[in-house]
Nucleic acid binder design. Structure first.
Lengths: 179, 179
DNA sequence: GCTCGTACTGTACGCCCGTACAGAACGGTG
DNA sequence: CACCGTTCTGTACGGGCGTACAGTACGAGC
């Protein structure tokens, strides 16, 4: 079954290249041709494996998305504790964090598996959980600032050890929250 | 000179609409047709006033860009003080903050006036100033987190009073820096 | 009253994108 | 050996984008 193995291997090579490119430039700014060039294929070959382009992002996101649904599902005593869990989540899935947080939200369809749709504009859901109900102006600002610190903190430090990033970012986010 | 006044008025109406749309969706995601529709014109009319599309962004950015050059030009005792000045700067120009920080960096040419080019990937320059020379891994993370907190904090709270945002975000950014 | 510059409209072009489709290469299976 | 599905190529199409260009409406100035 050499044929099948070949297919699965290039499939994962495409996924790896796409993950990197999406992380660097964002989903919309990365074309199929870019990905194809990175793997040494034609853009048609890439389209063969992942039929609408969405599937590529969907497949990359799926594990993180499931994790995210449970995160949004569990109850937290307050925004502070949710923020801690969020930072942990973001670091755990940092390879697809940008894809997950920035680029979806105006997305079209959900992963194929699937967790259904319901994954849409969670950036706003994150905010709502951190800020809490009927937040004061000051809390609104701090909630967004905390989310932003985690987001760019995670995205810009993919080369650093995961544990250090988690530890530092949790502390940073909580510092914002308590400021 | 009714003719001229008419032109200048629609010109500023275009600028206002573009500023809002760029802030919401980003530069690349906003088409000339979108802007034209917001002002009740054809996209050709918009193109008439701002010839390459870049000019629109350039003109919106110019005052902020000049302010930014002096910011980058002045010396600061340490990253902490620069961070404070940066937060102040970002809040002052929050209407174009997203345009300035996110969308430029891969930009093509500079404002026409002009401060020359040299306005390119300042996100990285900001980082360098905050993190300082030869930063530790922890400092790298905190520097990016601080910048991120200011950035999204500013962008997501355009409806709140400027003074409150400034005060809160400066405190938040410094809290990250000191965490 | 003719001319001219300003402010537009309508149409069309070229580019890049994702996608569709027909066909070639080729190992696996009967 | 013939058949077939998988994997990939080449070509082509439709749509959206920024842009170019010719033409129109119209107040201003001699």
């Amino acid at each position: 079954m050499t044929t099948l193995d070949q297919g699965n291997e290039t499939r994962s090579r495409i996924l790896a290249a796409a993950r990197e490119l999406f992380a660097q430039r964002g989903y919309a700014a990365t074309s199929l041709a870019d990905i194809a060039a990175a793997v040494g294929l034609t853009k048609t070959a890439v389209a063969y494996h992942f039929h609408p382009k969405d599937r590529l992002a969907a497949e990359l996101i799926t594990p993180a998305a499931e994790d995210l649904l449970t995160l949004l599902g569990t109850e937290f005593p307050d925004g502070r504790e949710f923020l801690r869990a969020f930072a942990d989540f973001a670091v755990r899935h940092r390879a697809v964090a940008r894809l997950l947080i920035e680029d979806i939200g105006g997305a079209d369809d959900a992963p194929p598996g699937s967790p259904g749709e319901a994954i849409r504009t969670f950036r706003d859901e994150f905010y709502a959980k951190v800020a809490g109900p009927d937040p004061s102006p000051g809390m609104r600002i701090r909630a967004w600032a905390a989310l932003g610190s985690v987001h760019t903190g995670v995205v810009k430090t993919i080369d650093l050890p995961e544990d250090l990033v988690r530890e530092t970012l949790v502390a940073a986010a909580l510092a914002v929250y308590d400021s």
